[in-house]
Amino acid sequence: MKTKIGILYSTVDGHTLKICNVIKEVLEEKGNTVKLFSIEDFQGNVADFDKFVIGASIRYGKHNPKIIEFINQNIAALEKIENAFFSVNLVARKPEKASPETNPYFIKFLQTINWIPKTAAVFAGKLDYQKYPFTDRLMIQLIMWMTKGPTNSKTKIEYTDWDKVREFAVLVNNS
């Protein structure tokens, strides 16, 4: 019997979706049936899956409120099955802030919900100033300046450790 896995994501610029697609690919290679949903489009039921993965990116220090609302409304169902959560943020580009135990956004996230995912990860995202609207670009440049990151408006860097993403998918598969 194939394991049915749901992956729900929230993304601002599309990078979290890219990460989800790599996770989906690894899980499908392991023989699972995987369905991928945007938080905007999910109409299903968590209980329809054997495992459920949630991924969300950070913008201005916060995960999408719809992700938090979804978790709060589905805690009972999530806790009955294997579950996982991952956060995507630029702070995770720093090795000392690249784990669930050390990433300030992940720690803050756990304090806003009454759920502890069984499997958790933090992935560094992508910085692409030219893709951002003007105001976002200025705000992100300010944040990067404050955190000693690149501020050149032509900067385009993908910080994601794809091996770490694949390792997470294997952990989800084996859970």
Rank of each mutant, 00 (worst) to 15 (best):
I5F: 06
I5W: 08
I5Q: 07
I5K: 10
I7T: 00
Y9E: 13
V22Q: 11
I23V: 15
E25M: 05
V26L: 07
V26Q: 14
L27K: 00
E29S: 11
K30H: 07
K30E: 14
G31Q: 06
V34W: 09
V34H: 04
F37C: 03
I39A: 04
I39N: 04
E40V: 08
E40Q: 14
F42R: 02
Q43T: 14
Q43S: 15
Q43Y: 03
G44F: 05
N45M: 11
V46H: 10
D50I: 13
D50T: 13
F52M: 12
F52V: 09
V53N: 01
S57D: 09
I58C: 05
R59L: 11
Y60C: 06
G61Q: 13
N64I: 03
P65L: 00
K66G: 03
I67H: 01
E69F: 01
I71M: 04
A76T: 09
A76V: 07
A77D: 15
A77H: 07
A77C: 04
A77I: 00
L78I: 11
F85Q: 04
N89A: 05
P95V: 05
K97L: 12
S99E: 12
E101F: 00
N103M: 05
Y105Q: 09
F106N: 09
I107W: 02
K108Y: 05
F109N: 02
L110R: 13
Q111V: 01
N114A: 13
P117S: 02
A120W: 01
V122C: 03
G125V: 08
K126T: 08
K126M: 09
L127R: 03
D128Y: 08
Y129D: 14
Q130Y: 04
Y132N: 13
Y132C: 08
P133Q: 13
T135R: 06
T135W: 10
D136Q: 09
M139C: 10
L142T: 14
M144S: 07
M146S: 12
T147S: 15
G149A: 12
T151E: 09
T151I: 15
N152F: 11
S153L: 08
K154G: 06
K154S: 15
K156R: 10
I157A: 03
E158R: 10
E158L: 05
E158V: 12
Y159E: 00
Y159A: 04
T160M: 11
W162F: 13
D163Q: 14
R166L: 08
E167C: 05
A169P: 02
V172Y: 03
N174D: 15
S175D: 06
S175C: 04
